[in-house]
Each structure stands twice: as structure tokens, then as C-alpha cells.
Design a protein around this nucleic acid. Sequence first.
DNA 1: GCTAAATAGTTTAACATTAAACTATATTTA
DNA 2: TAAATATAGTTTAATGTTAAACTATTTAGC
Lengths: 149, 149
Amino acid sequence: MGTHFDGTAEEMLALDCYIKLFRAADSVGQQINAHLRDYDLTTSQFGTLEAIYHLGPRQSGELGQKILKSSGNMTMVIDHLEKRGLVSRQRREDDRRCVDVHLTPAGHDLIAAILPSHVAGVVATLSSLSAEEQQQLAALCRKLGLAQA
Amino acid sequence: MGTHFDGTAEEMLALDCYIKLFRAADSVGQQINAHLRDYDLTTSQFGTLEAIYHLGPRQSGELGQKILKSSGNMTMVIDHLEKRGLVSRQRREDDRRCVDVHLTPAGHDLIAAILPSHVAGVVATLSSLSAEEQQQLAALCRKLGLAQA
DNA sequence: GCTAAATAGTTTAACATTAAACTATATTTA
DNA sequence: TAAATATAGTTTAATGTTAAACTATTTAGC
């Protein structure tokens, strides 16, 4: 087992599982996101563009939930994308607290151009698991993710 | 499936698996590391202390590999721990490029005090999976992690 | 309607993180 | 042995990240 902790079998199993989950997520993430540097996009910036591309214009907070980042962080991520002309903010008229974030044509073109190689990268990175194993992994992860409030 | 991408079955499965892996790692990590704030430790600081506690004094670079951080980052993490008197640096005599990082008595006491509740948190967080499921998850993650160079 | 509470987003301050340049030391090789 | 290369760690510059405080707006309760 990967852990050097000396505890009960239950503890060692949980720790080992936890460590492996993290190492896998980290190495998979690094592999999949490496190509984003070619486009000068961070993982968060890419995730934001991708979310809007697939879901349509969304509020800042909603995008933050999708890419697992804090609201304060989203302000900065959107700032950067806006400065580069990839997204635009639009205050909602019926509730002036909310700001919808849209893709600009440039943003749309960029994400559309990147996505195919991104998807190919995800497929390639996960190809060490069979389709059945990928389904198993997804199911276990979902169970684990759902367990929290 | 969790993805809104419209591609081949292979692509959708890989994307779904990738997303769920990340969400699980994120939510598990947040849950498990929340208590570290009580001790004013970041995840990286805790990981560094824990690694030395279990493995013994180690070089900066080796610790970085364990906790999956860059060498430059390790310099800062160790700086902070050293300032708080939790670790000490010791230049190795036989190779003066290397610096071994040791726990101070205060560092040793702190990590020893934190570890039991940390382990309990890991066990609790993973308890939504049976022992068998945890073994499956660990095995799938290892396979995925091993696939990269 | 008016105050209190909730919500969406931004700002602030502190720190984390990385890549790349750099310093010092050690090893290789010609 | 001198020069080239490799290695360990630090520094630098730019950005990411978070929690907490704050602003503006909306909703709820009285």
C-alpha cells in the first residue's frame, strides 16, 4: 500500500484510497491541461469558457460552482477573459445584482478551436482504463462526491 | 451523464469520468482539509509535515514529489514552516547542494497531535464507500496514475 | 411600506503556485 | 584538469486562490 501510516486496516485502506485518488486526479489533470499553455489559458479560464460554450451565458456564481472555484476567484478569472475580449459581462435587468457572462465571437471561436484536441486528450489520458473500468470509476467517484452535503 | 458535450460514446464516457474524478477529489479534499484551518496550516504545509513525520528527514525536492508541488513552491512552504519553528533546514555535508528538512520537536508534536483527527476524517469521508469499493477505487486510480511516464 | 435578512458580485489582504531564470555545487568527459 | 553538463535549491514575476469584509440589490417579515 502507498501509505506509511501504521493504523487499523480500515484506516490504511481509506488513506491509501485517498492518496491514490489525489495522485490520479493530479496526474490526469496535468496531462490533460498541459496543452492549454499553447493558448495562454489557465485551467480555470478554459473551464469557464467551456462551461459557457456548452451551457450558454451564465452568472458568475454558477460558473464558479461548475469549475469549483470561489466567487472572488471568478471575478478575477472573468476579468482576465474580459480583458482579452473572450467574454463580456451583461448586468441582468430583472435583477441588477446578477451579471451574465457571455462568450464574444472571439471567445466562441477560440473554445471551438481548442475543444477537439482537448476532448482527444481526455480520451487518450483515460485510455489506460477500459470502457467498463471508466464506468466503474465514474460511478465510485459520483458516490463519493454525492456523499457530501 | 454529467457532461453536456455531444460526441461519440467513447468521448462522452471519458469526459464524464474525468469530470467525476475531479469533483470527487475536490469535494473529498475540501472535506478532509477543512480542519487544518484550526491549526493555521495549509494543505501543502500539512502534507510536508506529515511526509517528514512518516518518512524521516527528506530533501526539499523529494518532499515536493510527495505532495505534488513544484520545487519553487516547496521553498516557500518550507520557509513558512521554518519561520513558525516547525521544521529546520540542514545542509548536507557530502553534497552541499542538498538541504535536508527535519521536524523540530514543536513540529513533531503538532503533527502527532493533528494526525488522529486527520485520519478519522479520511475514514469518515470515505465511509460512503464499502471496503471493497475503496479497494476498487484505489486500484482504478493507481492504474490511471501509473499510465503516465 | 419599512426594517431585517438574504443574495450576487467585487474588493482586499494574505498566501499559494508555477515557469523560468539564476546560484551553487557536483559529475562527466574530453 | 578544464570545460560542459547535470542537479538541488532559491529567486523572480505573474497569476491563481481563498476567506472575509464590503456594496448593491432584492426578498421576507412585521
